[in-house]
Design a protein around this nucleic acid. Structure first.
Lengths: 205, 205
DNA sequence: TAGATTGTTAATCGATTAACAATC
DNA sequence: TAGATTGTTAATCGATTAACAATC
């Protein structure tokens, strides 16, 4: 029980559990156990039970977990039982791919604003989205009360964009630029850098 | 000292160090210390020194680390002091963005093969790359001795593609599909799933 | 009922940090 | 030299795992 003081490493595993459970649900499975889930994920069953126990009791002895119920609880805990509006800064190749990706919507996130600094792109459409000038970033994000943003600009521009986002009130930033962003304590940053993952693998090859 | 038995969590931080040091080098800085690097990364200086000490002695008391020397050593340790040829499976929006991304080349990776299953795409060009039919995956990857691949296909196809890659001898897979891949022990998989990172942030918002 | 599986406790294991002698 | 910083040891801290009573 309790919502405060949960180790971040526990929180970081919940979306993985949610993803696997959603998949199992799509496969038509109704019930699972910590053993089965652990086997799928390469995680011990004890760890899964321990992680979940921080938030409540979601299973039944003898039978395990109702997948639909558990996914509902995980969505609530992770606050993705609602839809978060997300701003995307950068409409280059990567920004385009991100904007076209359908996988955000059904997992709690919807892109509602796209920005770019290139005057040739401003005013054009990126799929269903109009591309706005970054000069309007503060105004639009503030007005629409957007809390989450994705940064898909070149490394050189990433820190400046981040500063603008933070000033506009954004509290969570997903950064695709290969650079460590400096942000105030109240803001959360997560990095997506495929090369970091590749380099981590080549060490073992 | 020693190359075996290094905790994976230590290995996973080396690419982060390398990225930060490369950045500092670009900024014209020649020398740094565990304190300065730690401040940039939000990591304690003790941890950086401890991590590096698994692999050797790279600094000097009183003055710290020569950035050029340390980056060279990290590249060697991570085996990115060479260029790895990488196969890309999936030439959709995401695959296109990945193929166009310039950030792989100077960090140790070069895409040399692109595959797709869509007959309308096979034979066309994706930037400088010809798109091959996945039916030729085994032959081409085996012939060219490629060890690393990126999977950028829909979730439904990801496991089948992975099985083919593994059969063809690939030993490291960077997976962009939102699904947990099953692979033999000798194969390394890393996941890129932006939604997992977003969900990890919304927990705190 | 018998078998299975949970949630939780205590033990183990491993990672991080503080401190400092060595030394540039 | 005096100040700074390393590499390393020992202490602390935290995470994982094994085990089991409870119970479906």
């Amino acid at each position: 029980m309790g919502t405060a003081d949960i180790p971040d490493i526990v929180v970081s595993r919940l979306p993985i559990y949610l993803r696997a459970l959603t998949r199992m649900s799509q496969e038509g499975v109704k019930t699972t156990s910590s053993h089965e889930l652990g086997r799928r994920l390469g995680i011990s069953s004890a760890q899964i039970r321990k992680d979940l126990s921080h938030f409540g009791e979601f299973g039944k002895q003898g039978t395990g977990y109702q997948i639909e119920y558990l996914t509902g609880q995980l969505r609530r805990i992770l606050k993705v039982d609602r839809e978060w509006e997300v701003a995307l800064v950068g409409a280059g190749d990567l920004g385009r791919a991100v904007a076209h990706y359908n996988g955000f919507r059904d997992r709690g996130f919807r892109i509602t604003l796209v920005f770019d600094s290139n005057p040739a792109k401003v005013g054009t459409k990126l799929g269903e989205f109009e591309i706005y000038d970054v000069a309007r970033l503060d105004d639009l994000i503030r007005t629409q009360g957007i809390a989450v943003a994705m940064v898909a600009v070149p490394a050189e521009a990433a820190q400046a964009v981040t500063d603008q986002l933070v000033a506009a009130g954004v509290r969570g930033i997903l950064n695709y630029a290969p650079i460590n962003l400096a942000v105030p304590h109240r803001v959360w940053v997560q990095h997506i850098d495929p090369v970091v993952h590749l380099q981590r693998m080549t060490y073992y090859l």
